[in-house]
Write a protein that binds this DNA or RNA. Structure first.
Lengths: 225, 225
DNA sequence: TCTTCTATCAGTAGTATTTTCATTTGACCT
DNA sequence: AGGTCAAATGAAAATACTACTGATAGAAGA
């Protein structure tokens, strides 16, 4: 799960990133609105955390732009302004939640999870597919009620595939979603191969009825037999 | 699309060529002005990348010569000199764009594409002809809104024909443009026949209203019924 | 520290693309 | 019509890409 944090204060960023990474989110940051807009228009995020008090313009206008986009985004506003007015404005402009500073980090991660669940998982934290069940909150996988231990990347990849089952996923999108923007202008996808390989092996050994198929020259697709 | 890169530093050449070839351009190089001039006067390029700081004379004089030619060329200047003066001089002498070193390779390819688009297609990256539409950026072709998959050479040939529709194209020019200068003094055009054949078949099978006609002893011509 | 996870390398198999070959078809000219 | 060369064809061979694998070294985590 990929999150964009738009926040100018370094200390605040640091502490939020830390807490989200502990929960196994992939976090990217933007320090101002310009950078934020760049990232939003090029990449795809599962959730956007937006501090509306930034130098360079109000976050509300960014929210407004977002609303105009075809693709709906999940946004949580974080702000020192705790006026009811701002909250209402934000939510009207399509934000999914609003969190006033100061807040507990536990609360932030809880809201993030909840928003993502609502938007991308239709409310369920556990996805069942064939004989596989995937708990998106606890990051655990069971096959025929037997636990299957996947490491971080394997889990991320599997959950991405599962929530896009039977759909073609090209390697650029996969790399972006799982590895983030450090893979910017690379066209070498060796690192994908080795993860796919291990994941396939584990799925097969556990008897899962899921198969990750390669689509030559294009990408991968999760087929559910 | 054929590009001439005039640049003396080997490392610079290497990295630029790599990035352009990734975008499916056909790149040829000249290490100095003399060689550059030779190539320009014998071959036809869609875009010329010119480093004005070369041993053997300023690139500005070459630009000047170019301007005198009948046939307008698309030129992008790349230079370490980032003075406004040089930029102005260059653009006055007919360069289409100016890029100061160091630059992002992504930026270079973007500018090349944009210049080519501006010159050859009057602003559109997508050419529509009869019931066929050709996306020069994404290298895709659609016939009646159905995608038509062409491989690299087929696409190159089709786009060359389309941007020279109803005009006679002799085989030497075609070979030069699509295959580059490795076919210099060969008079064997078997490799063309094969590609033409496959392209024709695909066009016909997809129901495209385009026909590549042979003109006996001279070359080919794309006729639009 | 030791263990686990992740990225990279070198080699290989599998698949698609491009060129070559041998042969046939068709156009042009006298 | 018949000779000659250009062009087209199907198939095979050569080349270039893409994906996969096992091994391993480096990074991260316990």
């Amino acid at each position: 799960m990929k999150i964009l944090l738009i926040e100018d204060e370094a200390e605040m960023r640091k502490v939020i990133i830390e807490s989200l990474e502990k929960e196994r989110f992939l976090v990217e940051t933007a320090h101002d609105f310009h950078a934020a807009w760049d990232k939003i228009s090029t990449y795809d995020y599962d959730c956007i955390l937006l501090d509306i008090m930034l130098p360079g313009g109000s976050g509300l206008s960014l929210l407004d732009e977002l609303k105009k986009m075809k693709k709906q985004k999940s946004v949580i506003i974080i702000s020192a302004k705790n006026s009811v007015d701002d909250k209402v404005k934000g939510l009207n402009l399509g934000a999914d939640d609003y969190l006033a500073k100061p807040f507990h980090l536990a609360e932030l991660t809880a809201r993030v999870k909840s928003v993502i669940r609502r938007r991308t998982l239709e409310g369920h934290a556990v996805i069942e597919l064939k004989n596989v069940s995937i708990d998106m909150d606890n990051h655990t996988v069971h096959v025929q009620n037997q636990p299957l231990t996947l490491n971080r990347k394997e889990f991320d990849i599997l959950s991405y595939f599962v929530s896009n089952k039977n759909r073609l996923i090209n390697k650029t999108a996969l790399a972006e979603h799982i590895w983030g923007d450090h893979t910017d202008q690379s066209d070498d996808f060796e690192f994908i191969y080795s993860q796919i390989k291990n994941l396939r092996k584990k799925l097969k050994d556990s008897g899962a009825d899921l198969e990750i198929q390669a689509v030559y020259g294009l990408g991968y697709k999760l087929v559910t037999d």
